[in-house]
Computed example of a mutant assay.
Amino acid sequence: MFKKLFGKKETEKFLSPLKGELIPITEVPDEVFAGKMMGDGFAIVPKDNTVVSPITGKVINIFPTKHAIGILADSGREILIHVGIDTVELKGEGFETLVGIDDHVEAGQPLLKVDFDYVGKNATSVITPVIFTNLNESETVTLEKQGAVEQGAEGIISIK
């Protein structure tokens, strides 16, 4: 609590939630995400079917259609992992949740299994935005690398 009061930030360990291709949020084929209307972030074109928690925290939301999960990091950051574009239309088909609301999760812990073959054939895109929904107005997400990224990789982004 004192660190928050005096403006000191704990070092956050943030992992890639998927194996795939890391791309800027502005390249997501959806204007809500690309325009950062929900917050700044990044996206991954997935190459594996398991989504892991990028941070240690608490699951605060799982959409009924299982296509999106919200996590409150122990540091206070809120993260939304939205698997694919227009995947709400799939009504949960192709998704298997591995955690529940209010579960405490560790960075790297599996959250979801996704049948990306099914999603790719039945949704607009498999591109998966990862959004920080409660950044300060002055904070932005910067990609520290682009292109191929392994699941669980550290140092992929910075928030400044």
Rank of each mutant, 00 (worst) to 15 (best):
G7R: 11
K3E: 15
A107D: 13
G155P: 08
K58D: 09
A123F: 03
D30H: 06
E31I: 10
V83F: 00
G20W: 00
G120T: 08
V28E: 01
D86V: 10
I156N: 02
T50N: 05
I25Q: 09
M1T: 15
I159P: 05
V126A: 12
G41C: 10
V32I: 15
V149C: 07
F132V: 09
E96Q: 11
K4R: 10
A153V: 07
T50I: 15
P46H: 12
D30I: 06
E31Q: 13
L90I: 04
N136H: 12
L18N: 03
S53P: 07
P54G: 14
M37Q: 14
T65V: 08
T56C: 07
H82W: 02
F6Q: 10
T56W: 01
T26P: 01
I60Y: 04
E89N: 13
E137I: 08
V130T: 07
E154C: 10
L22H: 02
V32Q: 12
K36R: 14
L18T: 04
I101Q: 10
L111P: 01
D102H: 09
L15E: 07
T11D: 12
M1Y: 14
I156A: 08
L5S: 11
V88I: 14
M37E: 11
S75N: 14
K3W: 13
Y118H: 10
I81Q: 01
I81W: 00
V99D: 06
F2G: 10
H104W: 06
K113P: 04
I159G: 06
K160L: 08
L72Q: 15
A34M: 09
F6Y: 12
K4Y: 07
N122L: 06
E137A: 13
V149P: 00
K160A: 12
G100S: 15
L111G: 02
V119R: 01
K91F: 02
P110Y: 05
G35I: 11
S125F: 06
D30Y: 03
G35F: 05
D30N: 09
T142G: 01
F116E: 04
T142H: 10
T26C: 07
A43N: 03
K13L: 13
G92D: 01
F6G: 09
E89R: 12
K66S: 05
G35Y: 04
I131S: 05
T87V: 04
P17C: 10
F132G: 06
S138A: 13
V126G: 07
K121E: 15
T26D: 15
N136K: 15
S53D: 08
A107R: 06
G100H: 12
G152C: 09
A148H: 14
V83E: 00
K3V: 12
V88Q: 04
L80F: 02
S138C: 07
E12T: 10
I25G: 05
K160C: 07
G76M: 11
D48A: 13
A68L: 04
P29D: 14
P110V: 11
E21F: 02
A43R: 00
A148R: 07
L5T: 11
S75P: 10
T11S: 11
K66N: 13
M38G: 08
T50S: 09
Q151K: 15
L98E: 03
V119P: 01
G70S: 08
V119F: 03
L143W: 02
G57M: 08
G120E: 12
V28K: 00
